[in-house]
Design a protein around this nucleic acid. Structure first.
Lengths: 321, 321
DNA sequence: CTGTTAGCGCGTTCAT
DNA sequence: ATGAACGCGCTAACAG
């Protein structure tokens, strides 16, 4: 294995000179710096992370924390895209992605604690928006930097990346009411009252007001209640749902009751293959991969030149497809 | 931070004694070993991974490699459960899960190379069954241990975890033909010819023979061809599909054509929420979480006592739900 | 600007 | 059975 001593020897300099050259330390002549960097590149020298981390007292690793199972949305593909966005950005920074994932909250916390205490990981990404979360607490308490996906309710100073769900709600509703010419839309959400659902609904309600249509909302939990709701509202001729699953399930109930077909639907964050339904399904693309990338940007924003003010939040734009 | 020197000092022994005690080195008296371990536990001592890894020349990390986007099976949801199974098992072994994931094959390979060269990672899990794969080649070439999910076509000596797709195919078909009393089943698969699809189809065909029904297969690629297929086969009254997406899409086409409802369907690896369809959908559960756990077992089987022969493969049983 | 030296925390010789 | 000393690969403090 090629170490920094080898490079130093081949260059005829001391180890510390080589180290300085490779780390762009200013206290070295530009000439030898270039020379050594070129040599190292030619020889294919790669620094040993464990050694670097040991001296640095900090690992070049970002801990990515998944929600526990009971917290998980069905929107699995989302996570994969997120990971891709995160990792691509991390690779550029010579960082490694480590994952904390577990069934139980206790085990998850133990996982994160071990990453901090034994792994010397100092930066984390939480793939969920927490309310009051032991993981976030622990990180905050230890003054470790972390960014969450989705707006945290917990602490207003936490960093996070999110979509502009309000705007996306407005955009989606506008598309449904204007482009798709729906006159009696219904807004379908889960029973969880997620923040993003409320925001999208708010956008829907604003556009409904603007288009002079009655805002109508259905929480999709109990099937019987949903069926009753549909029976009470035979006028519905379009759906806006907080995700594909809610959309399709509600659509099924509608069709079951009225036989209506090819319903215009606008939903968010496409997670089903096209062709899975005969619904006229449009999705607001939230660009999970971009969200992942932005998360990393924010996570490392403390290393930016101070002139560019560090935002606390990055908002990813959406697009209707 | 609490180091091994602190523990040694508090115990009134030398650092090397403490080290031996904590690593269960036999060259130490049982008494002092117990004493030091108890002390360390009480003080909450946690060894520094970077230091351990540096001296060991090997990281306590397993690299988990995701397929590139174009390689991805439809079975996306699967991955999260796999990760959970893998990580739970890794935590027990004081190992860390690192991820390699990227859009392009080149970047992915660079990712893995860096994990090996700089990260000193020596064990990997590939979340896909490869045919001829640069990643697998690289790992093999460097004599690194790796396990794949799904049977590799590449090299018959590679370790892998898989379901018994043939048996699951038989089981699923039997359920469809016997329990659900379907007389004219169709087998729906993708156009990819994945190995697991072929095996499940083989199972289907065997049971078809046994039940004296005509085996019928439809590759779901071009919609028009599928529609034509359905028109040619109005007798179909049940579906067996290689996954939920194929199942639902084909079901939609059937209903579109004949209006038939509540079709009995057997598919694999439930990836859609219940209630998303009015189909009579049954799934063969493949236990992805168990697969993940088994992958780790196999990955570390070289550390097992030699008496218990190391298998090359672990097969996870299925269950119909 | 560069070389020498001393650690980072831990495992492991080599003595005793 | 235990301790002293060295080294893993690298960075940083201290000289010059």
């Amino acid at each position: 294995m090629l170490t920094i001593r080898d490079i130093a020897a081949k260059a005829g300099v001391s180890v510390s000179t080589a180290s300085r050259a490779l780390n762009n330390n200013p206290r070295i002549s530009v000439a030898t710096r270039k020379r050594i960097q070129a040599l190292a590149a030619a020889e294919g020298y790669r620094p040993n992370y464990n050694a670097k981390n040991l001296t640095a007292g900090e690992a070049n690793t970002v801990g990515v924390v998944f929600p526990t199972a009971d917290h998980t949305f069905p929107e699995n593909p989302f996570y994969i895209d997120l990971l891709r966005g995160i990792n691509t950005e991390l690779m550029e920074r010579q960082y490694v992605l480590s994952v904390a994932i577990s069934k139980t909250q206790d085990e998850l916390l133990a996982n994160v604690k071990s990453m901090v205490t034994q792994g010397k990981i100092k930066r984390f990404i939480l793939l969920y928006a927490h309310r009051t979360d032991p993981i976030a607490n622990f990180l905050r308490q230890n003054k470790l930097r972390f960014v969450t996906i989705g707006q945290p309710v917990d602490d207003p100073t936490d960093l996070f990346v999110d979509n502009d769900n309000l705007k996306a709600g407005i955009g989606g509703a506008s598309y449904l009411l204007d482009q798709l010419a729906v006159t009696h839309p219904v807004f379908v959400e889960s029973t969880h009252d997620w923040a993003y659902e409320q925001q999208r609904r708010e956008g829907y309600e604003r556009m409904a007001a603007q288009f002079n249509v009655e805002p109508l909302t259905c929480k999709l939990g109990d099937l019987e209640q949903a069926r009753a709701f549909i029976t009470r509202h035979p006028e519905i001729n379009g759906i806006m749902a907080t995700d594909d699953f809610n959309a399709i399930e509600f659509y099924r109930l509608i069709r079951e009751s009225s036989g209506a077909n090819h319903f215009p639907i606008v939903s968010f964050n496409r997670s089903l293959p096209v062709g899975l339904t005969d619904a006229n399904l449009h999705s607001v693309d939230l660009y999970p991969e971009k969200m992942g990338a932005a998360t990393v940007t924010l996570l490392f924003s403390d290393r930016q030149p101070l002139e560019s003010a560090t935002p606390r939040q990055i908002t990813i734009p959406y697009e209707i497809k």
